[in-house]
Amino acid sequence: MFNIRKITLIFLLLFARTALSNDVNNPCEEIEASSQIALCAQYDKEQSDNLLNSSYKATLNRIRLQYKNSPVLADQYLSLLKTAQREWIDLRDADCKLEAFEIEETAEAYQVTIDNCISRMSDDRADYLNRIAPDI
């Protein structure tokens, strides 16, 4: 069962994201066929995943640097961050499945919805991580 609002939202998000992108290898730049939408969503998810990983590593490094004189506190802080990140990934994945619930799992739109959700939530998480233990 396809929800027309979800499909419309997917297309709007894809085109809005495409308009903001300048990457030469970006398959989202000139979408001319519906088959390119899935490639674009997968690309966006990979880009967001890279951003999230970079933000996570930078946060770990900031904490290590800021707490270099307090190794016990650094270990506690890092442990909390690592646990929170693992649990957040589980929540993100569950929420994205929830967003795609009304779409048949074998339909291409299902994976596009999952990829777009993961991308959006990962970008938000990267922003959040960048605010943890900010440089002083």
Rank of each mutant, 00 (worst) to 15 (best):
Gln47Ala: 08
Leu12Glu: 12
Asn61Phe: 04
Lys82Val: 08
Arg125Thr: 10
Phe2Ser: 07
Asp75Gly: 05
Cys40Asn: 04
Ser21Asp: 15
Pro27Lys: 01
Ile31Ser: 06
Thr8Asn: 13
Cys40His: 03
Ile132Phe: 02
Arg86Cys: 04
Lys97Asn: 13
Asp95His: 10
Pro27Gly: 11
Arg86Gln: 14
Ala38Thr: 15
Pro27Ser: 10
Glu105Thr: 15
Leu39Thr: 10
Pro71Val: 01
Leu9Arg: 07
Ser119Thr: 06
Arg64Pro: 02
Lys45Cys: 06
Glu99Ser: 12
Cys40Ser: 07
Lys6Tyr: 05
Cys96Met: 07
Cys40Lys: 04
Cys28Asp: 10
Gln76Val: 12
Arg86Glu: 14
Ser79Asp: 08
Leu98Ala: 06
Asn25Arg: 03
Asn50Leu: 14
Ala100Arg: 07
Arg125Gln: 13
Ser48Gln: 07
Thr113Asp: 02
Glu99Tyr: 13
Ala58Gly: 10
Gln42Phe: 05
Asn22Val: 14
Ala133Met: 09
Leu98Met: 09
Leu60Ile: 14
Phe101Asp: 08
Asp44Phe: 04
Asp95Cys: 09
Cys117Ala: 04
Asn61Ala: 15
Ala126Tyr: 05
Ser70Phe: 00
Ile4Cys: 03
Cys117Val: 04
Lys97Cys: 05
Arg125Ser: 08
Ile10Gln: 03
Ala19Trp: 08
Leu60Asn: 11
Glu46Tyr: 01
Val24Met: 06
